[in-house]
């Protein structure tokens, strides 16, 4: 259901052409738990942007749930991000000065879900990630692990095809990292497709499939179980 075919991404800066991704192809099926690993500069971030419809490839095609994102306009990409993808970022990226509940409600607001439904679903999701008592807390009243759990709840709000996590435990102490990975594990068990981009072996080891990138190319793609 996620299909990348001959994806390349080059950046042109004056006369210097940088190839971030070089002819990358792979598929991710419904219910998979995948990690994408590689050293910094390997093209992980670029791949994450393309998977997340935040950016479009220079060449090649990417389709999500059968929808080809090639030649899509900004607003169409925005709709794909809203409906098909749930982002979890290293820096959490919650709206400051906005309650946990409102943060989780935001993607649904952009989708035009009615306010009562939004509020109800956001409450359920926050309870599911163990933050039922922190609904009105703003991000700066939450710990790193709690913020990331709010971000996970927000990512799940639109029940997306793909949960896309970019270094989700990068800013967290070990015990909270384990909690977050437990949540991903559980979400995968419930049938969610989860892609984690990381440079940490220990995090990658908890997934079921590991794709390794070096210099914009896939050098290995192995099942871990």
């Amino acid at each position: 259901m996620l299909e990348l075919t001959n994806i390349s991404k080059t950046y042109v800066n004056g006369s210097i052409v940088t190839t971030a991704l070089d002819n990358v192809s792979f598929k991710i099926h419904q219910g998979e738990f995948v990690s994408i690993v590689g050293p910094s500069g390997s093209g992980k971030s670029t791949l994450m942007h393309i998977l997340g419809a935040l950016d479009i490839p220079t060449s090649g095609s990417y389709s999500i749930n059968g929808t080809n994102t090639e030649k899509m306009k900004d607003d169409q990409l925005a709709e794909i991000r809203n409906k098909e993808i749930g982002f979890i970022f290293q820096a959490y990226n919650l709206l400051p000065r906005t309650s946990a509940l409102k943060n989780v409600m935001l993607p649904m607001a952009y989708a035009g879900v009615s306010k009562t439904k939004r509020e109800q679903r956001a409450k359920e999701l926050l309870e599911a990630v163990g933050l039922g008592d922190k609904l009105t807390n703003t991000p700066n009243q939450l710990s790193g692990g709690q913020k990331q759990r709010v971000a996970i709840a927000r990512a799940l709000a639109m029940n997306p095809t793909l949960l896309l996590a970019d270094e989700p435990t990068g800013n967290l102490p070990t015990n909270q990292s384990v909690e977050i990975m437990d949540i991903f594990q559980q979400l995968n068990n419930e049938g969610h497709t989860v892609v984690v981009i990381t440079h940490e072996e220990a995090i990658a080891a908890r997934t079921k499939r590991m794709i390794t990138l070096v210099d914009g190319k896939i050098i290995s793609d192995e099942d871990l179980i």
Partner: peptide, 16 residues
């Protein structure tokens, strides 16, 4: 800027 980035990542359209 960052807030705008977050909003766009979550599906805010230009118009919004």
């Amino acid at each position: 800027t960052r807030e705008i980035g977050i909003r766009k990542a979550l599906g805010a359209k230009k118009k919004t």
